[in-house]
Design a binder for these strands. Structure first.
Lengths: 167, 167
DNA sequence: CGCAATTCAGTTGTGCACAACTGAATGATG
DNA sequence: CATCATTCAGTTGTGCACAACTGAATTGCG
């Protein structure tokens, strides 16, 4: 890779500099990994006519069926500002429809069309290809997922504490 | 390729379903972790007047000084379509200036202003806060970084192979 | 030398992320 | 019951990611 690992810790030498450099390693890596991942998905999903975030929405719908926009946002950590236009595009593509809930007219429920349901068949090929592209074993992926989830949990908790008072 | 990674968990229940679900776990986790990370950065960087990608550019400039746009893109895995407007905003903020290279007039070199250099002082506080927010030890972070870099490398390699012929 | 291919930064267009806001529906409280 | 706060989806505006393209500068090759 282009980025070099900084040679172990040197607690004595210029701590400020080391911090800034180490920091860059972490955020570079996460940023790059995330984009590399979506890049591979992009190629595979192109033939399904889906973007990566659209694919995430479809995964939720394939697993849970009719789902309110609110719950989609909870699953995917996205708000209506992101989901509303995305769902509009999925609707324009004929994959989903939207219905106002009868019980609560504030809520809009998203459900699959026949075409959207049918797309699932072709989508089952994607995960295997992704897995192959990573070169990771199943165990390694599960382990990485666990670490990432722990990271996300810690970051979310820290963000909440930071919100009211930033020291 | 065509690696046979057995889902193994429940051989009785529809393997297709398992693949789709496992897949969702992975991409959800990576997507969520990346966004949670940038979310924490966003809060800290707000007081510096920087976005997360702008901060990444500044890190490169603080470490290497005057840098051509081309090289910035190599460090950050970004192309001119992303960097050009971003740099324009950094220039408007008075943090950097751009100069056509004398030797090669195609190239534009980005360099820090006094204000941009001065910002580094305040930026040194960020990494420590991020580290604290993750709740991870230094070793855990280095380990995670290593895995992510390996993942990125494998994904990039797979993307290159996929490009000419998608099977 | 002269022309074609390459290498640059920049522009355009599409889509996502997110903050801030709007407006309607619902629920809570006095 | 009347008002006020909350909960929804949606809109607007800013910024990033990236594909596809433009146009100028450079390089390579005959």
């Amino acid at each position: 890779m282009t980025t070099e690992v900084p040679p172990s810790a040197q607690p004595d030498t210029a701590p400020e500099e080391d911090w800034l450099r180490l920091d860059s390693q972490i955020c570079f890596s996460l940023h790059a990994a995330s984009r590399a991942f979506t890049g591979v998905y992009r190629v595979l999903l192109k033939e399904l006519g889906l973007t990566y975030p659209q694919y995430l929405v479809m995964l939720v719908l394939w697993e849970h069926g009719r789902t309110p926009v609110k719950r989609l946002g909870e699953h995917l950590r996205l708000d209506s500002g992101t989901l509303s236009p995305l769902l509009k595009r999925l609707e324009a593509a004929g994959l989903v429809t939207r219905e106002r809930s009868a019980r609560d007219e504030r809520s809009v429920e998203v459900l699959l069309t026949g075409q959207g349901t049918a797309l699932r068949e072709r989508a089952t090929l994607v995960p295997r290809r992704i897995m192959a592209a990573t070169g990771f074993t199943l165990d390694e992926i599960v382990d990485l997922r666990t670490r990432l989830d722990r990271l996300t949990g810690a970051l979310d908790a820290a963000a909440l504490e930071e919100a009211p008072d930033c020291r």
